[in-house]
Amino acid sequence: MTANRRVHRAVSGVALLITVAACTRREQAPAPPTPRVAERSSGPVTARLIVDPPEVQLDRDTLLTIQVSAPSNFAVRLPAVEGRVEGLATAGLFDREPRREGSQRVYERCVRLTPHPAPRHRIAPMAIRWQDPASGEGERWFPTPPLVLAVRPLVSEKPRGVADIFGPVRVRPGVATLLTYTLVLLLLLAAACAPWLLGRRLQRYLKLRRLSPKERALWELEALLARDLPGKGRVKEFYFDLTMIVRRYIERAHGVRAPEQTTEEFLQAVSQDSRFAPQVVARLRDFLSAADLVKYAAVRPEPQAVTAAIATARHYIETDAVEQSRRQQEGHGAG
């Protein structure tokens, strides 16, 4: 008998704990929000707007119920919702069967509204039309009250006592992002260096324009020698540049368009020009003919031949400039 009582007491205690826990959970569960109700009357007719939930929630639809209560012998017309909502789209509607509540008849139109992000969510006034056949008067109407609905945020505030488990994590940029940053940086550097480079090129151009034909040709010759093309195995390129230095000098100093002529055309032109002595034409012929063998016949010159070609070009430029200066002085003296 004692054992049975102990078992009974234990079962009763467990049941009591379960009941208390259930009641505690039930008390902690939030109550559903009360629908928002707006009401307006005109004589014996009353219109109510019922909005459920009372706040706009972007992740769920809003149910709008238009409820009109009027005497049972009145004719009632429910309003259209199209064009009367802002920030909400009509997703469907239906009318319930009118029902009697004492001497009144209740009409209901249920409209499902889908919210979307907007500056505000509003239900504009709608016309409730009614008529009393017994009075003999025409149809009358009155507007429903306007409603501006608040928007409930999708994410509620963080509950108290809840903290982040991890701190902020640095996300490394991807390869495409790094390439984009590198390209932008290179473009910025190019834009910053472009004025400086253009300035240097312009300064160099103006400096060369102020040089005499002799000074410019000797400057070009020193720049060509500094490149050391023969030492790099680029002999053909070296001879092209060397002969062009001589041809450009002749064009600047004597007005003969030597760079645009073939060797034969050039030699024919200078042999008929009194400013070029026969021995000078002979040296130019030997110099250009030897260079053509390297440029066009793939002849590999010895280092001594390269040195001799450089000396020939330098000697011609210097002596021709001296001879030209002498002729100019004689011309001024004769004048």
Rank of each mutant, 00 (worst) to 15 (best):
F287G: 11
L149I: 07
E97Y: 09
R234D: 11
E139T: 08
R247K: 12
L16D: 00
T182A: 15
A223F: 00
R40T: 15
T19W: 02
T62H: 03
I50K: 05
T319Q: 11
R170Y: 09
A190G: 04
G161D: 03
K158T: 15
F94R: 15
G167F: 02
A21K: 07
E265M: 02
V148Q: 07
G255K: 10
A253K: 15
E82M: 14
A191G: 05
L221C: 03
A22R: 06
P98T: 08
A70M: 06
D320M: 06
R170K: 09
A15K: 01
A127S: 12
K214L: 10
Y205F: 10
L178Y: 04
L206V: 03
A321K: 05
T24E: 06
P278A: 03
A282P: 07
R77H: 13
Q261R: 10
D52I: 03
A223C: 05
A277E: 14
F142K: 04
R5L: 13
E260C: 01
A10P: 03
V299C: 12
R326H: 15
E237I: 02
D228N: 12
A305I: 02
P143R: 10
S69A: 12
R326Q: 15
A297V: 04
A311W: 07
A29S: 11
V162G: 02
R122P: 00
A253E: 15
L186Q: 08
L288I: 05
R257T: 03
D132T: 07
R26M: 09
R5N: 09
E260H: 02
G87Q: 07
S274I: 00
E82L: 09
I66P: 05
R9Y: 07
V184Q: 02
E330Y: 00
A277C: 11
A334I: 10
R326N: 15
V148R: 12
